[in-house]
Amino acid sequence: MTQTLTGSATVDEVMAALAALEDPKARAINESHGDDHGVNLGKLRAVAKQLKTQQELSRELWKTGDTAARLVALLICRPKAFESAELDAMLREARVPKVHDWFVNYVVRKSPHAEELRRGWFADPDPVVASAGWALTSERVTKNPEGLDLPGLLDTIEAEMKDAPDRLQWAMNNCLAQIGITHHELRARAIGIGERLEVLKDYPTPPNCTSPFAPIWITEIVRRQQEA
Score class of each variant (00 low, 15 high):
R187V: 02
V128F: 12
K143Y: 14
R189F: 03
D155N: 10
N30V: 07
G34D: 01
A9F: 03
Q54E: 03
P204I: 11
V104L: 14
A68E: 08
K25P: 03
E146S: 15
E86R: 01
G7Y: 02
D202Y: 15
F82D: 14
D166I: 14
W121L: 03
E22Q: 15
G34W: 02
P212G: 04
R78C: 14
L148Q: 01
Q55N: 09
V128N: 14
Q50A: 08
P212Y: 01
D66W: 02
P151Q: 00
E160G: 10
E116T: 04
T210Q: 11
G65I: 05
R224L: 11
W170E: 05
V104H: 07
L71T: 01
D124V: 12
E185I: 05
V104D: 10
A19Q: 13
R92Q: 14
V72N: 02
R95S: 15
V96Y: 06
L200G: 04
E31S: 01
N30T: 04
L186M: 03
F213A: 02
A135Y: 06
V129F: 01
K52H: 15
A228P: 08
L117N: 11
E116F: 02
E60Q: 06
A89H: 13
A85G: 05
D35Q: 08
H113L: 11
K80S: 10
V108N: 11
E56K: 10
S211H: 01
N144M: 05
H33A: 11
R187G: 08
A46N: 06
N40K: 01
T64M: 07
T219I: 01
A48N: 14
C175W: 09
W134R: 04
H37F: 14
E22F: 14
L91T: 07
T205E: 03
H113W: 05
P204A: 02
P215S: 06
P151L: 00
M161E: 13
I191F: 06
R196N: 08
S131M: 05
V222Q: 00
A228K: 06
G194E: 09
T205F: 05
V108Q: 03
P24E: 03
G192H: 06
Q3S: 02
L57P: 05
Q178G: 12
N208G: 03
S138N: 04
N30E: 08
S111P: 05
W134H: 03
E115T: 12
A114Y: 14
W217V: 06
A135W: 02
E56H: 12
D101M: 13
